[in-house]
Design a protein around this nucleic acid. Structure first.
Lengths: 196, 196
DNA sequence: GACAATCTAGGTCGTTCGTCCTAGAGATAT
DNA sequence: ATATCTCTAGGACGAACGACCTAGATTGTC
């Protein structure tokens, strides 16, 4: 039997609620009720709403690092590892169609709120950017590695926004197929001849 | 001298505030103060917050239709008209880097809030989708017109999310250049040979 | 077994929210 | 001139918000 601390349960639930309902719209009471504890107990662990947001971002940073490390082990080569990234859109398609990308929507919300945690939320995207950059570099993309990484990350963000807006599962499939084809065309053509 | 009705001034200001601060985080008092009227006066024009959201979406729908009609007249051919769409990212880059895409972020927020107006906000994206589809069809894209339209729309949404997260103006420029190159490659190659 | 630290519960504070109401000012019509 | 309608102002409401406090329950330590 695994015992999970109250603090961790709070962060876990808050993470879900922030994702599914937004940071601003989620109240202390909502989280406390979801965890099944009193507000007083909640306040013992987190004194302000910003504190729990920080904890949620920390959790996401850590889980993202873990996921990227997992992909690093899974894929035999960079191309397969990048496919693991792309496959996120398929694996999480139901939630994405309902709530968008957890990271992208949080960054967008914090940008509008002019919230101090915006930069740290963006760091999560930064983890993906840097990991993808490393993959493209291993593929031989050289100086184009980071622009390619940003492009693929941006591509997935666009798909998430559109999927949440139109609730269109077929669209996700089309775009994922496009990403895979793009990846193949990159490895087959561009990196051998070094022109742009 | 042009007289603008109080109602129109309210909708205009609310549109800006919803964009820059988010729908949920913007209060009646915020809008009333921005317009320079009392809350009572405000309430005379809009009884609920949903009413003003509807009015803001109506305004955006109408302005979007107007913009698309304008592009229709500007561009000599479909390719140039599509460039007008792409150029939005450059023209509005400062605001996009600060607040993202007005339509995409609104759709994302309303999705999380499970708000009834989500579908109508998505209709704004639908206007762009349909207009772009018509352009690609004129270009000879046939059945691929709508997927191509969705892809370009999605692309721009991704760029907006990333630009707002990283506050990276150079990234916008890179992606816009990529869009333009993609558009050229489409018209030069794919539509003549009908394969895939 | 006594004591200290931590955890939990729930009440309370001041503020702000969306919403509603009344009253007066201004315009319009007969 | 009187009555009617629209516009404007600002107070008031109950509810919910983030934040804080006190007190009892639990756990750990010596």
């Amino acid at each position: 039997m695994i015992l999970i601390s109250t603090r961790d349960r709070i962060v876990e639930r808050a993470d879900t609620l922030f994702y599914e309902g937004g940071f601003e719209a989620t109240s202390f009471a909502d989280i406390a009720e979801a965890v099944g504890i009193s507000r007083g107990n909640f306040y013992h662990h987190f004194r302000t709403k910003d504190d729990i947001l920080d904890a949620v971002i920390d959790r996401r940073l850590e889980r993202t690092r873990g996921m990227l490390e997992g992909w690093q082990g899974e894929g035999a080569n960079p191309r397969e590892r990048i496919l693991s990234f792309i496959n996120m859109l398929i694996a999480n398609r139901t939630k994405i169609m309902a709530f968008g990308c957890p990271v992208g929507t949080l960054c967008s919300e914090l940008a509008k709120l002019d919230h101090a945690a915006h930069a740290r939320a963006t760091d999560i995207l930064g983890l993906f950017r840097d990991w993808l950059t490393a993959q493209f570099r291993t593929l031989g993309a050289g100086d184009r590695s980071e622009p390619l990484a940003l492009h693929l990350l941006s591509w997935s963000q666009g798909v998430a926004v559109m999927a949440a807006a139109f609730r269109d599962e077929a669209f996700i499939g089309n775009e994922v197929a496009g990403m895979e084809a793009w990846l193949v065309s990159l490895t087959e053509n561009s990196f051998k001849t070094k022109e742009h």
